[in-house]
Amino acid sequence: MERSALDRALLTDRLDWNLLRTFLTIVHERSLSRAAVRLHITQPAVSLALRRLEEHLGHTLIERRGSNFRLTRPGEEVLRIATDVYGSVARLGAELTGQQDEVSGLLRLLTVSRIHSGVYDECLAAFHRQHPRVTLQVDVMRSSEIVDALAQKAGGVGLSLYRQSGDKLQHLLFLRQRYAIFCGRHHRLFGRTGLGISDLLAEHFVSFSSDQLGDVLAPLAVFRDQHGFSGGIVATSASLDEIRRLVFAGYGIGCLPEHIVADDVTQQRLWRLPPEEGVADIDLYLLWNPERRQTPAEAAFITHFRHYVARYSLMERLGDTVNAPLAALRTPTAEAGKKNT
């Protein structure tokens, strides 16, 4: 098959491969300033590298309007080619040493903050035992950024809240988190019993940035609208830890995952408010784009994750620790090997 014009331009010996590496970092970080931090260079140097690459290829690769960031069609093609190139480079060492069967290379995992699960912790430990040559890079991002990056093939694997849409991402349900309403020790409702929803309607709220119609935490906004909450939004954040902090400080009441703040309730830092059944179940998914060619490390992680967590119910995955015999914590490969001996 004849190579595209971009293929030929990228393979020419006149191309500085550092420009390609900078381009990949810009796409992964979705920001020139964050790419500069990642590469330990200045932001003007990153901007210059992008401009030089675009001039060499004769195409605009990235369109930026304020905080919006979008790859052009040539940009998507360059990303595909560059990802293939660097995937081949990552496999080069193993090929030269005759270790083709051992998975190695970089696994970049895009994830939301504060995943609270003993099963997840043990899953990562088992993956490292099974694939010690894989280097793991964990990038904490907002759910919307993760989904956008995966949809544009700028990332391989993500753990994120997800509202299924037309982006064709593959998704595997991992956690089902029950959100409930809490107030903090400094709030006037703290410690009060016998309350009903009607007692909360005029209270101010501390809200997630994504707690709005059309976003990943939309069920929380729908609940407030349906019940006629009239208090104002007095504080917002994209960080669960900051929402938890602001609720404790008495800025207002707020929705938080029950299993994450269970210790805060026990220690009387937070107080559970009605309704007793909670507000909404919000799901966390493992995500990947089936149209993006996976590296061996990404493919190995997806397979391992699917097999590992399938042994636990949704309720068990919310626990702090994995209360199971040691044999149950072995990797799927090890278990299969034992059965076949």
Score class of each variant (00 low, 15 high):
residue 14 R to G: 11
residue 17 W to V: 13
residue 17 W to A: 10
residue 21 R to V: 02
residue 23 F to K: 01
residue 24 L to F: 04
residue 26 I to Q: 01
residue 29 E to V: 04
residue 30 R to S: 12
residue 36 A to N: 03
residue 37 V to N: 07
residue 37 V to Q: 13
residue 39 L to R: 14
residue 42 T to R: 10
residue 44 P to C: 11
residue 48 L to Q: 11
residue 50 L to D: 06
residue 50 L to Q: 12
residue 54 E to C: 04
residue 54 E to D: 07
residue 55 E to C: 08
residue 56 H to A: 14
residue 57 L to G: 01
residue 59 H to T: 05
residue 60 T to Y: 01
residue 61 L to F: 08
residue 63 E to N: 07
residue 65 R to P: 00
residue 65 R to Q: 15
residue 66 G to T: 07
residue 71 L to H: 03
residue 71 L to G: 05
residue 72 T to F: 11
residue 77 E to N: 06
residue 77 E to R: 15
residue 78 V to W: 04
residue 84 D to W: 07
residue 85 V to S: 07
residue 86 Y to Q: 13
residue 87 G to W: 02
residue 93 G to C: 05
residue 113 S to H: 10
residue 122 E to F: 11
residue 123 C to K: 00
residue 126 A to K: 02
residue 128 H to N: 10
residue 134 V to E: 00
residue 135 T to Y: 06
residue 141 M to L: 15
residue 143 S to V: 02
residue 150 L to Y: 09
residue 152 Q to L: 12
residue 153 K to S: 14
residue 153 K to A: 15
residue 155 G to K: 02
residue 161 L to C: 03
residue 164 Q to D: 10
residue 174 F to S: 01
residue 176 R to I: 04
residue 176 R to Y: 00
residue 176 R to A: 13
residue 177 Q to R: 13
residue 177 Q to C: 08
residue 179 Y to I: 04
residue 180 A to E: 08
residue 181 I to Y: 08
residue 183 C to L: 10
residue 192 R to T: 10
residue 192 R to E: 14
residue 194 G to V: 06
residue 199 D to G: 09
residue 200 L to N: 01
residue 202 A to T: 13
residue 203 E to I: 05
residue 206 V to F: 06
residue 209 S to A: 14
residue 210 S to A: 15
residue 216 V to K: 01
residue 217 L to G: 06
residue 218 A to N: 07
residue 221 A to V: 02
residue 224 R to Y: 05
residue 224 R to K: 14
residue 226 Q to W: 08
residue 227 H to C: 03
residue 229 F to Y: 09
residue 236 T to W: 01
residue 238 A to T: 11
residue 241 D to Y: 04
residue 243 I to R: 00
residue 249 A to P: 00
residue 250 G to A: 06
residue 250 G to W: 02
residue 251 Y to A: 09
residue 253 I to R: 00
residue 254 G to H: 01
residue 254 G to L: 02
residue 259 H to N: 15
residue 259 H to M: 11
residue 261 V to R: 00
residue 264 D to F: 07
residue 270 L to W: 06
residue 271 W to A: 02
residue 272 R to F: 09
residue 273 L to P: 01
residue 275 P to V: 08
residue 282 I to V: 15
residue 282 I to E: 09
residue 286 L to R: 00
residue 288 W to Y: 13
residue 294 Q to Y: 01
residue 299 A to D: 07
residue 301 F to S: 01
residue 305 F to T: 03
residue 309 V to E: 01
residue 310 A to W: 05
residue 311 R to H: 13
residue 312 Y to R: 00
residue 313 S to T: 14
residue 313 S to Y: 02
residue 314 L to K: 04
residue 316 E to Q: 15
residue 317 R to I: 03
residue 318 L to F: 01
residue 319 G to M: 08
residue 334 A to R: 11
residue 337 G to V: 04
residue 340 N to H: 13
